[in-house]
Design a protein around this nucleic acid. Sequence first.
DNA 1: TATTATTTTTGACATGCATCAAAGCTATAA
DNA 2: TTATAGCTTTGATGCATGTCAAAAATAATA
Lengths: 220, 220
Amino acid sequence: MPTGFSADEMQKLDDMVEKRRRIKQGELLFSSGDEFVSLYAIRVGFFKTCVSSEDGREQVTGFQMAGEIIGMDGIVSDHHNCNAIALEDAEVCVMPFSDIEHLSRELPALQRNVHKIMSREIVRENSVMMLLGNMRAEERLAAFLLNLVQRLHARGLSQSELVLRMTREEIGSYLGLKLETVSRAFSKFSEDGIIEVKQRYVRIVEPDALKKIFNPQTYY
Amino acid sequence: MPTGFSADEMQKLDDMVEKRRRIKQGELLFSSGDEFVSLYAIRVGFFKTCVSSEDGREQVTGFQMAGEIIGMDGIVSDHHNCNAIALEDAEVCVMPFSDIEHLSRELPALQRNVHKIMSREIVRENSVMMLLGNMRAEERLAAFLLNLVQRLHARGLSQSELVLRMTREEIGSYLGLKLETVSRAFSKFSEDGIIEVKQRYVRIVEPDALKKIFNPQTYY
DNA sequence: TATTATTTTTGACATGCATCAAAGCTATAA
DNA sequence: TTATAGCTTTGATGCATGTCAAAAATAATA
């Protein structure tokens, strides 16, 4: 959240985000069909969002970490359109959307922020579409790992080490691959000395090699 | 746009959308990297939006028709993040985003509308992710055709006949398929008597059969 | 009209990933 | 410790879609 607010304005923002909610690993923050009331700012923990078709196929649409906002899918129809599941014990700020709308009429900086957050999600989904539509398995996994460490690094964590919060199956669902294919791609990267993997722990040994796989052209 | 505005408010809305722009077939409304200034409401015509990776692969991220809003990808970074290309001669309303933000502070109904439009785009992209991640070629094409006629029907056009504004290759790019695969799926549907195809013209003979292909479970 | 370019269709073949299966590993509980 | 369940790895095989190629249909241009 940007700064530049007066004390009074800060107070109103604080009031809006005062309510907290804890979600244990495996529990739902919201699910498809729930009435939409609030956006959620993740304080601690890690989530996945997923949609499922009527015949039971599931698509993970994103992984969200601390500092990210979740729930914008619900605005259009006043009902949530996906499930949000905690991949580890988590805590969120509950931000009633009517409060957000009300307050952002007074605070242009907040208004702008809300717009940017939604636009960022649209742009993110655009690049997932590129990934799903055009990339091969190893490119997808490289893109996924690079994106994860980049976001973790932006939160002050390592840019070379990470602990995956999700299973191979969930990664596969996000990347449009089967879990076996994800596992094989991990093994391949490991054999090639690009990463070290031990279950959920991953260390990126050769980030440039990963980037080259993700985007061959830049390194012709 | 919803109603319920006063005469004064309607005037402000009118002022905001007064500027028009014509785009000929094949021309760009905006392209990736352009400074973001305005959203565009399509008055007439048909667009595609696409992103391209540095090594030249292209992904069509959507097809937009009259009455739809385009350009929200630009908000997050103040620069557009995709290309918008007219698939037929088109005309749009230019809506400066600063005006939209300013006015939506006064008009809650407008504010709500802007939020819904962005949320709708997020939800749409979620279902494209499902399509790209989980569905097979014929399911994708069935979903695509059903979505198109549904949107055309909502505009007062036929729910069984349509003229495609895009090539097989563009359909394929949107659906994560090669043009040959799209062509084969069209032929298959045609052989099975589900649709009639003649180049860009398509008539849906058996909508239920299409829905069944799109979503087998509902019809077990 | 003839000519050229673009788009679409169809066939033959190749391949990347899915599927099926089994074993190994890890974590949790008894 | 042993037992159980869940997750991951690896191998063998199959299939849906990609690739390559050529012809047909259509549209654009001279």
